[in-house]
Design a protein around this nucleic acid. Structure first.
Lengths: 238, 238
DNA sequence: GAAATAAAAATATCAGATGTTATTGCATCC
DNA sequence: GGATGCAATAACATCTGATATTTTTATTTC
């Protein structure tokens, strides 16, 4: 199974054989993608009840489709399914945020090491392109233009994916995609971003990866995620 | 979301708040558990088409329920959902087996280290009990009694879970539970087991964990999984 | 104010109808 | 004979609506 994430081009219901792992793709308009987006971006609040009748109106879908979607999201951990009591947006907590960040460090750094070891010229090319696009967007953000947060986050996702894409494990990329999205929900909840520090960390990981400096790249990525965690935790109240 | 696995007591559709991560629990008789069991134990062959009408007869469930179940399993990676072409049991491959085993090493060893660091007296007690039960069953298997493979695998699961259960991360336990089940499917496909070596490795991990010898425990666990991988790969043909 | 009970709401499951897409079999053509 | 095009069939995806069960809410009673 190829990795799925919100920025995914393909329809979640119709995975094709393309190898590109996907996250946060707001292009998709399936019920699955729309609900997942709304959970990640906080339009559906953590812990809130997902009444089927309400969802029916809101997403203009039948109960069958909605239940299939909610079962999928429950399996991924964005929705809690309680027998005979319906569906709820998975609650958030500091502990959970901690766990997600730690797992992201574990998996993403591991994948980065593999990717740097395996990456070919195409990998480098994609990485350069992804960093360039992210960097342009980051400049805009630093100038105070906060109108394109979703685009910004898509570029962030595409950069982090480009880093690890040559790791050689689709299973690893799949797990990472889900973790990224869970982490992203927390980032969206606190809605503060770290500015120049994060930009510089991106640049440093990028440079080290291109230079095939595994240790520097992995260490910097670890710091990058952990600083993001601290930043989120500081702004986060249960 | 608490970890789910085949040996799970609770109904997959009705997760409660109990913290016990679950795998291969054949007690459950929900459609979800029955189909998942049949995939893992090879009664539904890798790659085979899951025609809804056939499943309807076989599991005596309505199309709605089946589609919800298949969506869940698709999300976990046991089923492939192809748009307008229906559902298929996820195919197997040597590469996939490799990936699964490597991820299990990464996550399970990491969790074991945390667990040894955090584990209290209850953890030790559970671990002793789990190893004892597994060991008894292993003796039976060594004597040639192959009539209780599912029970044996449940005890194996419970032992590996007991090792890592004090890791302090529900997210980690969830990811591990799915990986264990995927790995188990490959073990069931080749249907050969390793005998005394594996028994001794279990004993060694167990002793090291109780002695809080993190390095020995993690190294032995790594060897245990990797030897299992080699053994499965040798018997596995695409 | 708490406990028991009745009413309402919501869920889970099912059956059946409809439109769409994929697959299959057959005839045709080169 | 093999490839191509077309019709018939099968299968999927979605929706509506019905029923039984369970949970939640409101009301009554003590």
């Amino acid at each position: 199974m190829a990795p799925l994430s919100l920025f995914c081009q393909r329809n979640a219901q119709s995975p094709d054989e393309s190898s590109m792992p996907k996250s946060l793709n707001l292009v998709g308009t399936s019920t699955y993608q729309r609900i997942k987006r709304d959970i990640i971006f906080g339009d559906l609040a953590p812990g809130s009840k997902l009444k089927l009748d309400n969802l029916r109106e809101r997403y203009e879908a039948s109960m069958s489709t909605l239940r299939e979607t909610l079962n999928r999201l429950a399996s991924e951990g964005f929705v809690d399914a309680l027998d005979q009591r319906g569906f709820f947006v998975t609650p958030v907590s500091r502990e959970d945020l901690h766990e997600i960040a730690n797992l992201r460090v574990l998996l993403e750094c591991h994948a980065l090491r593999l990717s740097i070891a395996n990456g070919d010229t195409d990998w480098e090319g994609n990485l350069v392109a992804a960093h360039h696009k992210l960097h342009l967007m980051e400049q805009k953000m630093l100038e105070g233009d906060n109108s394109q947060i979703e685009d910004w986050k898509r570029y962030d996702w595409e950069f982090h994916l480009a880093l690890i894409e040559a790791c050689g494990s689709n299973n690893l990329l799949s797990l990472h995609a889900v973790l990224y999205d869970k982490y992203l929900r927390y980032q969206m909840l606190v809605l503060t971003h770290r500015g120049e520090d994060a930009v510089e960390e991106h640049r440093k990981v990028f440079k080290a990866a291109l230079a095939r400096d595994v240790e520097t790249a992995a260490d910097t990525l670890k710091v990058h995620i952990e600083k993001g965690l601290e930043h989120s935790l500081a702004a986060f109240t249960d």
